[in-house]
């Protein structure tokens, strides 16, 4: 579960990215965080992942109050959150399999078990046959799928993605959203920040619409995507 209570985020230069934002995303939900460029989507994404701290207000993620979370506890929070970045943040000096192995090395899984799980994750995103390929040899869609495999390999309860389809063509974007839908179906909470939310067959997403840092209409937050468009 994710709970935002009157969250404000002000950057040192004075820009206010989020203003008094409150919402709740229940476990197992599929949520879109949407809005134009500069609306505060990425800030919200970074606050949920505790990459940044709110200027005021409270945030609870997976039952943990981020305000009271010490620096040493942060890694353990993030291990339960699968993060997918717009720029993927892949490591280009190692192959696809090694990229997916990294989160498993962090938790200290024995190499043989880790490799088995990493290959299973690559299989889930349709990249099993590209396990030995270097990221630079992958297409944009494949790179995004690799980023998803890395995000889910630790079986997180929450999957967070920031503009995962922004640079993809329609077919690749549909593939990526299909992968998110599959994880949602097995109970993973999925939160996607995107300026372009798309309908996903069989999914009734929660909508969190932002405009200039404010939540547009909390009552509409449970409305289907088509309504927002």
């Amino acid at each position: 579960m994710i709970v935002f209570s009157s969250v404000c985020k002000r950057y040192p230069e004075g820009r206010e990215a989020l203003k008094d934002v409150s919402f709740e995303i229940a476990d197992g939900k599929f949520a879109w965080v949407t809005g134009r460029s500069g609306a505060g989507k990425t800030t919200l994404f970074r606050l949920i992942a505790a990459i940044e701290r709110p200027s005021s207000g409270g945030i609870v993620v997976n039952g943990q109050n981020l305000a009271s979370l010490g620096r040493r506890a942060l890694p353990y929070l993030r291990r339960n959150i699968g993060l997918v970045f717009q720029e993927q943040k892949l490591l280009f000096d190692r192959n696809a399999l090694a990229n997916v192995l990294l989160p498993l090395a962090i938790v200290g899984l024995p190499p043989r078990d880790a490799e088995r799980r990493a290959l299973a994750a690559l299989d889930k995103v349709g990249l099993l046959d590209r396990a030995k390929a270097m990221p630079v040899a992958l297409s944009g869609g494949e790179q995004q799928r690799l980023a998803i495999a890395r995000a889910v390999v630790n079986r997180p309860a929450l999957l967070l993605a920031d503009e995962p389809t922004a640079k993809l063509d329609n077919d690749s974007a549909a593939d990526i959203l299909g992968i998110f839908r599959e994880f949602h179906r097995v109970g993973v909470t999925v939160v996607i920040a995107s300026h372009d939310p798309r309908p996903i067959p069989g999914v009734e997403p929660q909508l969190i619409a932002l405009e200039q840092g404010r939540l547009l209409d909390t009552a509409a937050s449970a409305a289907p995507v088509e309504a927002a468009q």
Binding site: R72, P75, R78, L83, L91, D93, R150, A151
Partner: peptide, 14 residues
């Protein structure tokens, strides 16, 4: 690499 590792849950020791 350090930034990515931190983002996906690496502790300082790692």
């Amino acid at each position: 690499e350090i930034e990515v590792a931190r983002l996906i849950g690496a502790a300082d020791d790692f």
